[in-house]
């Protein structure tokens, strides 16, 4: 009992004169004195007392967005890589016919997501047979770290279709073999070489999310 009171007083930084006799003779208390003192100092650490300014609502909102791109059952989630590659190649060949200075058929503004809050961008598209030729322009986004790439995705609900990867995000030309109207939402992620075909959790740019665009 007196051990508990003595230790409480020590941890609280109180004057412990009344416990001096006990502490002098109690080997158990003497053994924990240094650690109690360490704990007392630790209790002043701001990390223990300050709190994140982000709320549970912020988290649940982020989860709401993620739910559209997480691994979900269903064969339409993503086209087989081989089919996609053939489509991308085919569209790429036909896109060569596009006159360089034609205005884009559509443009989607992008804003920085939580991993790149200061970044902005846009993706412009030219309709071609079987898909779209794309030009992605970004600002405030550093080159992808070694071993990682950026990936541009077109989304419809929980379906994600990759338009390709890149490392230098300044101005990127890509092709995609799907109609923009079928995949109204646009996302740029940072991907590691983990073999996971789904978009990663590291979102860097996204369009204004169209929840109705499923």
């Amino acid at each position: 009992m007196i051990c508990d009171d003595a230790r409480s007083a020590l941890l609280g930084g109180e004057a412990v004169a009344q416990f001096d006799a006990h502490l002098a003779g109690c080997t158990d208390c003497q053994a924990v004195l240094p650690e109690l003192e360490h704990l007392r100092r630790s209790l002043a650490d701001p990390a223990l007392w300050e709190e994140s300014s982000r709320t549970a609502d912020d988290l649940v909102a982020a989860i709401g967005h993620r739910r559209h791109v997480q691994s979900m059952p269903g064969s339409r989630r993503r086209w087989p890589i081989g089919v996609a590659a053939v489509l991308v190649f085919a569209v790429g060949v036909s896109a060569l016919a596009i006159v360089r200075h034609h205005p884009a058929d559509w443009t989607v503004p992008l804003v920085g997501a939580e991993s790149a809050l200061g970044a902005t961008g846009s993706v412009a598209g030219w309709n071609v047979d079987g898909g779209n030729r794309l030009v992605l322009e970004t600002s405030g986004l550093a080159a992808a770290p070694p071993g990682e790439v950026y990936e541009l995705w077109f989304m419809s609900g929980d379906e994600a279709f990759s338009a390709g990867t890149f490392t230098d995000p300044g101005r990127v030309q890509l092709m995609i073999g799907v109609a923009r109207r079928e995949y109204p939402n646009v996302l740029v992620t940072l991907e590691s070489a983990d073999g996971d075909p789904a978009p990663s959790a590291t979102w860097v740019l996204w369009s204004t999310w169209d929840e109705e665009g499923r």
């Binding site: 508990d4 009171d5 230790r7 409480s8 941890l11 109690l36």
Partner: peptide, 10 residues
């Protein structure tokens, strides 16, 4: 303070 620090110590 006494009660809190006693609980923390425990």
């Amino acid at each position: 303070s006494h009660r809190a620090h006693r609980r923390l110590a425990e």
